Simulated assay, not measured.
Amino acid sequence: MNIDWLGHSCFLFTNQDGLKVLTDPFNEKVGYPMPHIETDIVTVSHHHADHNYVQVLRGNPQVVDGEGAYNISGLPIQGTPTFHDAVQGAKRGKNTLFSFEMDGLRIAHMGDLGHLLTPDQLTDIGHVDIACIPVGGFYTIDAEQAYHVVQQLNPKIVLPMHYKLDETISLPIDGIDHFLERFANVKNSKTLDITLASLPQTQQVVVLELFSIE
């Protein structure tokens, strides 16, 4: 499986057969180049324009939106209901955490998670190999809370997202340093090619470079 980061909470997962899953496409106001690409499946964690801008995508992808069990193109996807804040959605509403398996690896994408996970949510999510976790705070969990979510899920690979990359990003969120300082094993990579056999033995945070959209 190959994983690219397109900015914000948007990742492109491509399995060995070429099936593509894209998460949380965003609009132009975020500050990254918009993801004008083709995908087979797109997940939408919640309906804010920096996470649900599916109209920017090429082709006609299947949209997965909301909690529940899905099977799209033979790919099982589980949507776990969570909240966008720490007060049961009273400030920012609901958020869906999506988990799915590609090439034998189980991925969990947190969306705009605003709280630590409950025992019921952890049971619903199950085992996780790769976790995409917001770390920038303000709208989501912050660096310290994200660290605790990592402890809850115990994935082998952590992919930070939803942080301020540079000053071109207009959102009032934090950078990545406060999250990274909590980990000893941090790797920077242009892209991530990963298989079940190549999973690291010890937990690793992988900071992906921004994918170049042509």
Rank of each mutant, 00 (worst) to 15 (best):
G59C: 09
V42L: 09
E28Y: 10
G31F: 02
H51F: 05
D24M: 00
R58A: 09
V64A: 10
L22R: 06
V64C: 10
T39W: 08
N60M: 14
E28T: 13
D24A: 12
L57Q: 14
I37A: 02
K20H: 07
L57E: 12
F26D: 01
P33V: 13
V30E: 03
R58Y: 12
G7V: 02
W5Y: 12
P25W: 04
D40N: 13
H36V: 11
D40H: 14
K20Q: 15
K20E: 01
G31D: 04
S45Y: 00
H51S: 15
N15W: 07
G18F: 09
W5E: 01
F11V: 03
G18T: 07
Y53M: 07
V44M: 00
Y32N: 02
Y53A: 12
H46F: 10
T23V: 04
D50A: 12
L6T: 02
N27P: 01
K20N: 02
H47T: 11
P35R: 02
N15A: 01
N27T: 06
T39S: 08
E28K: 06
H8M: 01
R58I: 08
Q16W: 07
P35N: 08
E28Q: 11
N60R: 15
V42P: 06
L22G: 10
H51I: 00
V44L: 01
G31I: 03
G7K: 06
L6V: 01
V64Y: 13
Y32D: 09
V56C: 12
V30W: 06
G59E: 06
Y32S: 07
G59L: 08
V21E: 04
L22F: 08
I41P: 10
V64S: 11
K20V: 10
P33G: 07
N15D: 15
V64H: 08
Q62M: 14
T39L: 03
Y53C: 11
G18N: 07
F26H: 07
D40Y: 06
S9L: 09
H46C: 14
V30Q: 03
N27H: 08
A49P: 07
I37Q: 01
T14D: 06
Y32K: 08
K29R: 12
L22I: 14
F11D: 03
D24Q: 10
V54W: 04
D50C: 12
N15P: 11
G18H: 09
Q16T: 13
W5D: 07
Q55E: 15
Y53Q: 13
T43M: 10
L12F: 02
Y53T: 15
M34A: 00
V42C: 09
L57H: 08
G31N: 00
K20I: 01
S9D: 10
H51G: 02
N52P: 03
H36P: 02
N60Q: 15
V44T: 07
W5M: 04
F13G: 00
G18R: 06
P35V: 09
H8W: 15
D24Y: 00
L6N: 02
N15G: 07
P33M: 14
F26V: 05
S45P: 02
F26R: 00
D24S: 13
I37L: 12
V44Y: 06
R58W: 11
G7P: 03
G7C: 03
S45T: 01
I41L: 11
G7N: 09
P25Y: 00
Q55K: 10
K20L: 05
N27F: 05
